[in-house]
């Protein structure tokens, strides 16, 4: 049985038990201590298998939103629900452990989940194959390129056997061509695995290239400003006219959001 079968099989009971959403956020508000409001009354729901992109300028609390969904932070008000799953989280930096090989990094996620040794070995191989790094398992992180490291991080996130993948600008530090290739990879992998993805980015094209739906957040505090369904069939190309057209439209809204702050500042 492949890891994909395992992942699919385990997802069945969960969806039958709980509501039809993979992630539910309701009236969520966040402030740190007595600081300013970071997120204000955010409500959104993500369907199982949906790819939702969250887009916003600096200071919109994108990362805070993901941390809240991941359970790393507690909301000041409102609620977050990820039925049946502990979401896995990917960062802008691969954050692989340099004292472990690529394979061992993936294996650690399995080990911390309590997977037995023999199964661990096999699953690690399968996950590395899934991100097309079959031969690189013995390599140390510093021996890999940025794109390869981020693929190992992806394999490690998938090793958590979560159906919900939270991604915090995971490709922002990569060059354009590598990013493009990883967009293809992510599209392929999430279809194979059937994962729900919550993807945070400030790159409009990236959001349109990847997402089934794009949510635009306003800044300071973060509020849901707008929502755009993306009805372009996959596989999409980042340079395709459909992607470009929608990107232009969303960028207009994003610009309007940012301009609002200029007026606020001068008034």
């Amino acid at each position: 049985m492949t890891v994909l079968d395992t992942l699919r099989r385990r997802s069945v009971p969960d969806t039958s038990v709980v509501s039809s959403s993979a992630v539910v956020v309701e009236g969520m508000t966040k402030r740190f201590g007595r600081g300013p409001l970071i997120l204000d009354d955010i409500s959104l729901s993500v369907a199982p298998g949906e790819f939702l992109c969250i887009l916003g300028a600096s200071g919109c609390g994108k990362s805070t939103l993901l941390n809240l969904v991941a359970g790393l932070e507690q909301p000041t008000a409102g609620r977050v629900e990820v039925p049946g799953h502990k979401p896995s989280l990917m960062f802008q930096e691969p954050a692989l452990y340099p004292w472990l090989t690529a394979g061992e990094n993936v294996e650690l996620a399995l080990k911390l989940r309590g997977v037995g040794k023999a199964e661990r070995r096999q699953t690690t191989q399968e996950l590395l194959a899934l991100v097309r790094l079959e031969g690189a398992g013995h390599k140390r992180p510093h021996e890999l390129s940025g794109g390869m490291r981020q693929r190992v991080a992806m394999a490690r996130a998938l090793a958590q056997d979560s159906k919900v993948l939270l991604m915090d600008e995971p490709f922002a530090a990569l060059d354009a061509i590598t990013r493009d290739v990883l967009h293809d990879e992510l599209t392929r992998i999430r279809q194979e695995v059937g994962a729900t993805v919550l993807f945070v980015t400030h790159n409009v094209r990236e959001a349109v290239r990847l997402g089934d739906r794009v949510i635009l957040l306003s800044s300071r505090p973060g509020r849901v400003a707008n929502e755009f369904p993306v009805r372009i069939p996959q596989p999409r190309r980042i340079e395709s006219p459909e992607v470009a057209a929608l990107s232009v439209e969303i960028t207009e809204h994003l610009r309007a959001e940012i301009r609002r702050h200029a007026q606020k500042a001068s008034s």
Binding site: F91, A95, Y97, K111, Q160
Partner: peptide
């Protein structure tokens, strides 16, 4: 790096497990 500890948290390591698998090797 604090990020190593956050990743450890996300992977489900707490307390002594976090110390053994993340904190101590990183501090080596």
């Amino acid at each position: 790096p604090p990020l190593y500890l956050r990743v450890g948290h996300v992977l489900g390591a707490r307390g002594l497990t976090l110390a053994r698998h993340v904190l101590l090797p990183a501090a080596l």
